[in-house]
Design a protein around this nucleic acid. Sequence first.
DNA 1: TTCAGCCTGTCG
DNA 2: CGACAGGCTGAA
Length: 279
Amino acid sequence: MPELPEVETIKSDLQALLGKKLRNFYCLKPEYLSKTRLSEKDFFPLLGQTLFQLSRQGKYLFFHLATGVLCFHLGLTGSLILTFNSSLDSNSREGSSFLLKHLILHLEFEDFGLHFFDPRRFGRVYLLKGKKELDDFLSPLGKDALAISLEELAELVIQKRIPIKALLLDQRAIAGIGNIYADEILFRTQINPKRQANTLSFSEIQRLHQVMQETLKEAIKLRGSSVKDYVDGMGRSGLFQTKHLVYQKYGKPCPRCGTILKKTIIGGRTTTFCPECQK
DNA sequence: TTCAGCCTGTCG
DNA sequence: CGACAGGCTGAA
């Protein structure tokens, strides 16, 4: 679910936690942690430690404490919600019985609570101890989509013989783009998602690089896309879904030329594009 | 490089 | 009831 703009929005919502000590840790679903070979006791060394940094690469969010780095991947439906005075208000959206049923972790910081929910359980929690573990974790991950330079993007694009959309979705190449933003970026760039990456001209790569930056930044400004479940760190919906031009709009007219938008499958993912103006 | 599998929920 | 959903992994 959450792609780069959504995770970035959540990260900025959680800045209030910086400098706060982790007071307590409750795991409501221990079997969730076992997917990443963790158990509750692995978290004991974090207790009493101060959160001194939040960072993000691609769709991963990292909580840095002196004794380890807690990392979340939100999968399709994960959410991280901050509450004041630690507890959930049962009248709020995040306190709804639906979400409560899917509460995985409750972290109790000074003054704040942080709740991790994941209805579909595709998300993951990791605990990285020491610089080497963090480096090893990050090493297979591509450069963040907002940090990649034109030259780096060009390097990737010209050497890959896979559909350009598959390249955008490959987290080992570029980190942070998912199905929504891949479709939106390619439509705005007017490049057909099935085009083999290595057939793109340099001016198309330039356009792709620029549109990628603009689209992701605009989405962050609007606090992400709430298609279904996504909510930010305060439990609020984003607004970028109102700016979606093609994602999941197959069968409707292209907003640029009026041709009916088509649907196809690329890399196992539903893809919407305009057969007329994406070449 | 494709594809099932992981999970639960929703929609038609 | 089946189809499908924002993602990723590992096996064929």
